[in-house]
Design a protein around this nucleic acid. Structure first.
Lengths: 241, 241
DNA sequence: CGTTGTTTTGATCCGCGTCAAAATGAGTGG
DNA sequence: CCACTCATTTTGACGCGGATCAAAACAACG
C-alpha cells in the first residue's frame, strides 16, 4: 500500500483509496469496490502561484480536488475588470460544472502554490451512475458552493471597506487556525492588494490603505512577507461595523 | 385527465404529470411510471405578497416549485439588516437544501403573489433513489443556483448605484419579455424601494433617487403603480457604466 | 545598478450614506 | 365622504468614505 502510493505519486497518478485527505474530498464516502470503477488516470498536479487551471468558457473536461494551497475563481465583467467570487482550499472541489457537460463558469487561478487532483469528467459520470454514495457528496458540494457564494456576498461585499477587510482576514485566519497550536495568535497568508480589492469590490488603493491602517493600529502585524498575525478579537469588533 | 386536474386543484393537490409548466420544473424529465412513486401529497398553495414561505434555520421538510409570481431569498446579517441574495420565478425551485436534510439557509418571502407546489422532502428522496432522471435535474438546479448567485454578485453588487439599478431593471424586464408581443416596450413590475436597496446593497433613499432620476430622463415610465416600461437600449448603456 | 511591477501615501473630488422633513398613498373610523 | 393615522416614497442638505489621479517608496530581477 505504501509502496503503491509512492509509485503512484512518482508517475503523477493518484491512489484515491489511500489519499490522506480523502475524508475531506469528493470521494470520501466511496467503498473499496467503487474504486475499481475508476478506469481513467487521476493525475496529481503541482501548481505554482499564478497558474491558470482553466479559463471561463473552456469545455469542462475534468474537475479538480484541491489537496493543498489556495485557488481563486474569477469572473470577468463586461468592462474588463475582474471580480473574485470564491476561494477554494484543501478538500474543496473546483470545476464541478464539468460533470454537467457545461463549459467552466469561471477562470480558476492558483493563489498559493497548490497540489490538485485532476479527475476526468468520465470518471465521475461513471461513478455517478454506479453508486449513490457519490451522489450525496456531489449534492453536498453544490450546496456548499451556494452557501459560500451567498456568504461571500453578505460578508465581503457589504458594509464599509474596513469591515470587509476585517471579515476577509477573519475568514483566512479561521481557516488557518484549524489544527494549529491554540495559544499563538492565528496567522494568515495574504496575497496581492489587487486580488484583495477584487474580492471585496474595492480599489487596490483602498485595500492597501486599510491594511496599512490595521497594521498601524496593531490589529495585525507582519511576520514574514504577506504573512500576518491577527488579533481576532479586534478584527471581530471591526467586522461587526 | 382534465377532470383529474380540476379535482386535484380543488383539494389543493397537484397533478404533476399534467402540469402546465412541467417542462420548466424539477420533474421535467420524469416518465409516467415515475409518478407512481409519489405517495405523498404535493400541495398547491396560493401565496399573497409578503407571505413567508419558510424562515432561515427551520428544518427543511419540503421544497417548492414556483409556478407563477416572484419569491425573494433573504439573508440576515449580524447587525440585523437584511440582504436579498436571489429572486426566484416560474420554474425555479426554492429550498433545495431540504433534500440534504439541512435547515433552510435563507428566509423565503413572496414578492409578487405566487402559486407554488410544496413537495415533501420524502418524495424527492424516494424519487432520487429510484430514477437517475431526477438526479440530473437536481444537479442542474444546484448549478443554476450557483450561477445565479455569482451573477448576482457581479451584476447587482458591483459598480455605481445607477448601473446596479439599470442592471436590475434589465434583469426583470428581460424575464418578463419572454413570450411577450415583441413590438411593445418591455415592462417590469417593481417592488418596494427597501427591497430594491437590499438587493443592490444600497440605501432605500439611493434606490428611490435613482429610479426617480431614470423616470425624469425618460429611461423608464410608470404605466401603473410600480409597473414600468423600460427603454432597454438606454438601460443597457447605463448598465455598462 | 537600472528596469519593471507592486505597494504605499498624498491630494482632490464626487457619489452615496445619513439625518430630517415634506409629499404621497392606503387604510380606518367617525 | 372626509378627517386622521400610519407606512412608504420622495426630496433636500450635509458630511464622510472611497474612487480617482498622480507621485513616491519599495521590492524583485536581469
Amino acid at each position: 500500500m505504501k509502496g503503491q502510493r509512492i509509485k503512484a505519486a512518482w508517475r503523477g497518478q493518484a491512489d484515491c483509496s489511500g489519499c490522506a485527505i480523502r475524508d475531506l474530498a469528493l470521494f470520501a464516502d466511496l467503498m473499496e469496490q467503487d474504486f475499481n470503477l475508476i478506469h481513467l488516470p487521476i493525475e496529481e498536479e503541482v501548481l505554482p502561484a499564478g497558474r491558470v487551471i482553466y479559463n471561463a468558457g473552456d469545455p469542462g473536461r475534468a474537475l479538480f480536488t484541491v489537496r493543498s494551497g489556495l485557488v481563486k475563481l474569477v469572473q470577468y465583467l463586461a468592462d474588463g475588470t475582474q471580480r473574485i467570487v470564491r476561494l477554494l482550499r484543501a478538500g474543496d472541489t473546483v470545476g464541478l460544472e464539468a460533470i454537467l457537460s457545461q463549459p467552466y463558469a469561471h477562470t480558476a487561478v492558483v493563489l498559493h502554490p497548490a497540489l490538485v487532483c485532476k479527475i476526468p469528467r468520465e470518471v465521475v459520470e461513471r461513478l455517478s451512475v454506479e453508486t449513490p454514495r457519490l451522489h450525496h457528496q456531489l449534492m453536498q458540494r453544490w450546496s456548499e458552493a451556494v452557501n459560500r457564494a451567498d456568504r461571500w456576498l453578505t460578508a465581503l461585499s457589504t458594509g464599509s471597506a474596513r469591515a470587509r477587510v476585517a471579515r476577509l482576514l477573519l475568514l483566512l485566519a479561521e481557516a488557518a487556525e484549524v489544527g494549529e497550536n491554540s495559544a499563538a495568535p492565528p496567522e494568515c497568508a495574504l496575497f496581492s492588494r489587487e486580488d484583495i480589492g477584487a474580492m471585496l469590490g474595492v480599489t487596490t488603493e483602498t485595500a492597501s490603505r486599510t491594511i496599512a491602517e490595521f497594521r498601524r493600529q496593531g490589529v495585525i502585524s507582519e511576520n514574514r512577507s504577506n504573512l500576518f498575525a491577527c488579533d481576532m478579537e479586534a478584527l471581530r469588533a471591526i467586522a461587526g461595523e
